[in-house]
């Protein structure tokens, strides 16, 4: 099967180019297996991967124009020639390896931890099963970056717009009954950039390999903001 893979070595190449590889495909083969085979053919080829089963979120790449996790993408689902590029909008370090610094900075900016003003209890902070259910569809994010790097608003303003991943996380803590910083979190999201660059394009929903819905989470944040403002 024919693969076209984006190659770029900043030390020797003026710009990225596509290189063709021929990979013998076997039944049940995932895209990550093909990338490993390409690496066997040309050891200078660089890409990130680790767990190989859609848990670590390392091997997000752009396949035939869509961001996917290579390890859980069956080759059989892809149209030949399979074009593999790094995540769009991110600075390329080498081949498919991109610089995700801004993505992590935006994650950090939403304070992705529980904030408690009350003194900590002796043991755990209790939560009802109903309140726990509110975190479903939020906590599962593995931070692969497929969503944020598919988001046009994040392409245009990655230093100011939080992006779908960080906003999903922001809602994950706003929705948590144990968190006590709702007002501070909402205040921090005000202004035209951090939250309101989202124009409900929904690329994030389309590409999320875990089937999560950042757009819906962003809608919840906006509604809560409005509720607290009027």
């Amino acid at each position: 099967m024919k693969f076209l893979v984006s190659r770029y070595n900043p030390e020797s190449d003026a710009s990225p180019y596509m290189q063709a590889f021929d990979v013998e495909v076997s039944r049940g083969m995932m895209l990550r297996d093909a990338l490993l085979e390409i690496k066997r053919q040309d050891e200078s080829f660089a890409f990130r991967h680790s767990c190989g089963e859609g848990v670590c979120g390392s091997d997000g790449v752009n396949v035939n124009g869509t961001n996917k996790l290579a390890c859980i993408t069956p080759i059989s689902e892809l149209k030949e020639p399979i074009e593999i590029r790094p995540f769009p909008g991110r600075p390329i370090i080498r081949d498919l390896v991109v610089d995700m610094t801004q993505f992590y900075q935006q994650y950090k900016a939403v304070k992705p931890w529980l904030v408690r003003n009350d003194p900590m209890p002796e043991q755990e902070i209790l939560q009802s099963p109903q309140d726990r259910d509110k975190l479903d569809g939020l906590y599962e994010c593995i931070m692969c970056g497929c969503c944020s790097t598919a988001c046009p608003s994040f392409w245009w303003n990655p230093e100011k717009f939080h992006g779908p991943q960080a906003l999903l996380t922001a809602w994950r803590f706003l929705a948590d009954s144990r968190d006590q910083a709702t007002d501070e979190r909402l205040d921090a999201l005000e202004g035209p950039y951090k939250l309101f660059r989202c124009h409900t394009i929904m690329n994030c929903v389309e590409v999320c390999p875990k089937g999560l819905n950042p757009t819906k989470a962003i809608g919840h944040i906006k509604n809560l903001m409005l509720k607290n403002a009027v």
Partner: peptide, 12 residues
């Protein structure tokens, strides 16, 4: 105002 230009604009 800078502070109001997010939610207010969106709601309006």
């Amino acid at each position: 105002s800078r502070k109001a230009s997010g939610l207010k604009a969106w709601a309006l």
